[in-house]
Design a protein around this nucleic acid. Structure first.
Lengths: 158, 158
DNA sequence: TTACGATATATGCCATGGCATCTAAGTCAA
DNA sequence: TTGACTTAGATGCCATGGCATATATCGTAA
């Protein structure tokens, strides 16, 4: 099969469709692996990893990072707290909010899950991303993310 | 701010994080626009567009395309059918399934929504995708999608 | 034809996210 | 200090998707 390398302007809807299909399938595949090996799903892994890398974050910080609602974030933290992977401690400088941290178990879990995550992701995308166009794709998404965050595109209300 | 152009091997988890954040925000932003102008969300627009381009598809065809479950697809079609945008007609060669088609209203809707979709997407990503790395990113996702579909990665059960 | 296994999808239950709302707490000015 | 406004996030209701199951139909072999 000949590769389709159009010369004209980029087909943005086509690109977006490819992007969403890839993201869906990768997310599904990572969910499967993380669930069977660690009893968590990818969104939980991402929460835990963020809290490992940003201890003392607030619920709103997570909501902004992941561009999901505050309510959903609060409920997500509830679930992690129920498993004793995360603790809330009252923010001493603003008692409306809590500061979030991993427990020792949470830290252990995220380290183990990260190995699974990284390995699985490599199995799925390393070949394509390791190709000649890989670095450019990395660059595009890094830049696009910066732009979307700067302009606060696609932040939910609640 | 200096741009971060690492020379080493690609940071796949970092790339995946950027990818998911971009997809979330773009999907949210497109949802907002499509909802306010046409009363549909992006997933519905994608169903309608697929049926316009593949008339006579079955529920399973949509499920495979979007890598979502058959049950969810059936329910999604229920909702579009209730709005009289899609019709089910019994498949004459296999009465377990139905063949799906847009109604005239559905066709009109998808054409109008497509204009909104394309315009909005261009506002959000044309600048970055029009840069020098754009074509490479397009190429990467086209290829990655092909690989993931060939290997049937991340297909839900039901 | 009948019986059995496979297939397409419709449906029910559960989990999760969006959005609205509620409460506690912080800010500020008079 | 008090009262009005704002903010953080917890909670309730609803919509949607995953997965399991139920139903109808199909294909095949006896």
């Amino acid at each position: 099969m000949a590769s389709k390398s159009s010369r004209g302007p980029i087909d943005l809807p086509g690109f977006f469709a490819d992007l969403v299909r890839c993201e869906t399938r990768l997310y599904n595949a990572l969910n499967d692996r993380l669930r069977e090996r660690h009893g968590i799903v990818t969104s939980q892994f991402e929460f835990l990893r963020f809290l490992r890398d940003h201890p003392g974050s607030r619920v709103a910080d997570l909501a902004t990072e992941f561009a999901i609602g505050i309510g959903a974030t609060s409920k997500g933290i509830d679930r992690l707290e129920r498993q004793a992977w995360v603790t809330r401690r009252t923010n001493p400088s603003d008692r409306r909010s809590s500061l979030l941290d991993l427990t020792a178990e949470g830290l252990q879990l995220v380290e183990a899950a990260e190995a699974t995550f990284t390995t699985t992701l490599a199995e799925l995308i390393a070949d394509v991303l390791g190709g000649p166009s890989g670095p450019a794709a990395v660059q595009v998404f890094s830049e696009l993310r910066s732009v979307l965050e700067r302009d606060q595109v696609g932040l939910p209300t609640g």
